[in-house]
């Protein structure tokens, strides 16, 4: 059984904007594996171990990403954490892709190389773009059902089903779905796992397959910037608020009295 985990490498810190040129300052910003992708990977590996323990079907966890050559380091981290092998879609022709072009490239790679997959995991969103669109778009391209905002999963291989718990706006839902399916994961343990020395060594022996646009299709204009319907017209810094009065005082009672006066002036608290 193949489980594919789609991951993204994201900037670790704050990305700033050059006020003169209006472009992003990327220098000196480190990259990390998107936390929601790590939760997704954890879930895939948990299923793999669970199947091993119960003597079920063998599970192969394949991580897939599209990105610059540096994205290899995010894939390597996934291999250290227990994924079996990795695929990197890396080509200038993929660059500048919006969510539609990204999801299309991922779907074509899956159809070409891993068509017999059972399950696809994604993180609910990446912390840099926050769109949460690539997962559902990928599911649509592949013609499979999707379940988003999932907090826990229970695979039922004998019935070719998966049961999940997902967040809703005011609670949760238990949803059952036919396989193959795509599941986007919204939570997991927050402790960044540190792989063991043995896992790090093992990861170096695992395969990271490089895929270029021509490997996927003759018509590469559907990928990258040329395949992206959305265009960024301009970027600019957000409007900022300016701070008002700030009280630094040794007398908390007096500070609170001033606060109450402020609340009264703005009619949140009645006078007298």
């Amino acid at each position: 059984m193949k489980i594919i985990v789609c991951i993204k490498q994201v900037p670790a810190g704050e990305v700033k904007i050059n006020p003169e040129t209006g472009t992003l300052i990327r220098e000196g910003v480190q990259s990390i594996l998107n936390p929601f992708c790590e939760y997704a990977l954890d879930e895939a590996i948990r299923i793999k171990k669970e199947q091993e323990e119960r003597g079920g079907e063998e599970v192969e966890v394949i991580v897939l990403t599209m990105g610059p050559p540096q994205a290899r380091s995010a894939l390597l981290r996934c291999l250290e954490l227990g994924a079996d092998r990795a695929i990197l879609l890396c080509d200038r022709k993929f660059a500048g892709a919006d969510t539609l072009a990204t999801s299309l490239a991922l779907s074509e790679a899956i159809q070409k190389f891993e068509e017999d997959f059972t399950l696809i995991f994604t993180g609910k969103q990446a912390i840099d773009g926050d769109t949460a669109q690539v997962g559902p778009e990928l599911a649509e391209h592949l013609g499979i059902p999707q379940i988003t905002y999932v907090t826990s999963t229970n695979l039922i291989p004998e019935r070719r089903r998966i049961q999940v718990e997902r967040e809703t706006e005011n609670g949760y839902e238990i949803v059952e779905c036919k396989l193959p399916a795509l599941v986007s994961v919204s939570s997991g343990s927050n402790i960044l796992r540190i792989p063991s020395f043995k896992e790090i060594i093992n990861a170096r022996r695992k395969v990271i397959k490089n895929v270029i646009a021509d490997d996927l299709s003759k018509d590469t204009s559907r990928f990258g910037l040329s395949g992206s319907p959305t265009q960024v017209a301009k970027i600019f810094p957000p409007k900022s608020r300016t701070g008002g009065q700030k009280i630094e005082s040794d007398d908390p009672e007096a500070a609170v009295s001033r606060l109450i006066e402020f609340l009264q002036e703005n009619v949140f608290v009645d006078k007298e």
């Binding site: 300016t242 005082s249 908390p252």
Partner: peptide, 27 residues
Amino acid sequence: IFKVADFGIVGDILEIVPILIKQLREL
């Protein structure tokens, strides 16, 4: 947070909030 706040108090909330509750009740 102070850069966006219209009104700020520098202090431990565990000290300030009980005083605030007390003063609101007195009022």
